[in-house]
Write a protein that binds this DNA or RNA. Structure first.
Lengths: 218, 218
DNA sequence: CGTCGAATTGAAGTAATTCAAACTGTGTGG
DNA sequence: CCACACAGTTTGAATTACTTCAATTCGACG
């Protein structure tokens, strides 16, 4: 996490895959790889570093005492996560599959507040907007509507036009959508029966009727 | 919304009731009163102003095409709302009861980004944290757990020690917690039967056993 | 005292969960 | 190359938490 060459630093500085939606926070640091399901940080741990996904995907989540898990968000290549208001992480984070992250000292970003605070605000505001969309889904949408909203959101964020390759398992989707794995599975089968999607391979979803999916989310 | 005296401006500048949790965003503007259920702004309207609650309470919400409503948050005296990343409000806002708001031009706050961006970031980060707590509640908690979490959150935010006076109706609570009004009512009755609360007057809740309520939220 | 909106209570219905079993795809070793 | 194991997923049947619809009660206000 600490060793890096000047060349690598240079390479990272000009992050190539940053999506248009991601505010430009200058993030310089070492690269590190994570195995599938490996913990990146735990809830309550010191938030000394902030992270940017280089490849793979990450889930941030909270767990209730009896094990119920709510995934607050997934993070895809180019996206930043782990920025906290105070010194502790409020969620845990794990790699969804194999993942590579850019790791920067929190102080190097938050320390220079004048240079970064506008970008930090934009990032927090964007995250907040997504969280509120998510809250609407969790509070008021049916299982079919949740899955449809999820597929469209993922398609948009990955830039998938027609074929969507999901990095996460059914259990992850269930814990993101506030459902059980069985309900997610049944719902996907149902959307397929309705001709909205084709999910022959379980993580590769063809979006056959985006309009139809979008109508479910109104 | 536009008329104000220099004296009033001065009075507002040193906002007295700002809670400890609310970042210090300099907010100067006119005061305006709203009736119960009066619209403050609609979803999709230009976000030219930002607001601070002087008295009363505000709900921000989104509505699905068939009328299902999800309240994303309530705002209490001293709290700021209506700050948007871009030029449109992403939620609607209404006064919960009679309310008075300080209204400031968005440009006067966001224009001077150097002076306010750190505070803006802190505010957005604090809102985000609350939204994620809310998402956990909506995604993974039972009706009893939701209501308990809601009562404790409101007690904390209003500074209520033992007696909590709720500004909002059962319908508002239901739409915040992703439940129906009947379920909220039955759940409150149940918590009372368990000796956790005393809800003899429907908007005045005595918290008899905060520990017990907190245990429900673990 | 009567009216009206809000809240509560009751009974029936349903979407999603739970528990259980079967299937699928992938990697491993015989 | 095929049998086997295993994890992830799907399907089925029964249960349940919450919703829906309907009726009653409560509380504020003229």
């Amino acid at each position: 996490m600490q060793v890096q060459s000047a060349v690598m630093r240079q390479a990272i500085r000009s992050t190539p895959m940053s999506p248009a939606s991601e505010p430009d926070i200058r993030l310089v640091g070492a690269m590190r790889s994570y195995d599938r399901d490996q913990e990146i940080f735990g809830e309550g741990e010191p938030a000394d570093f902030i992270f940017k996904v280089a490849s793979g995907a990450v889930r941030c989540f909270r767990i209730l005492s009896d094990g119920r898990r709510q995934i607050s968000d997934f993070y895809l290549p180019g996206e930043i996560f782990g920025v906290e208001l105070d010194d502790e992480h409020r969620t845990a984070a794990e790699a969804v599959g194999e993942a590579a992250l850019v790791i920067a000292r929190r102080a190097s970003v938050l320390g220079d507040e004048a240079a970064n605070s506008v970008a930090l605000w934009r990032k927090a505001a964007a995250d907040l907007r997504r969280c509120r969309d998510h809250a609407l889904t969790l509070g008021r949408r049916s299982a079919a509507e949740r899955v449809a909203a999820f597929l469209l959101e993922m398609a948009e964020r990955t830039g998938a036009v027609d074929v969507l390759d999901l990095p996460m398992s059914r259990q992850d989707i269930a814990d993101y959508l506030g459902l059980t794995i069985e309900t997610v599975s049944r719902t996907i089968t149902g959307l397929q029966a309705d001709g909205l999607i084709d999910a022959r391979c379980c993580r590769r979803i063809h979006l056959l009727d985006r309009e139809g999916l979008a109508e479910l989310c109104e």
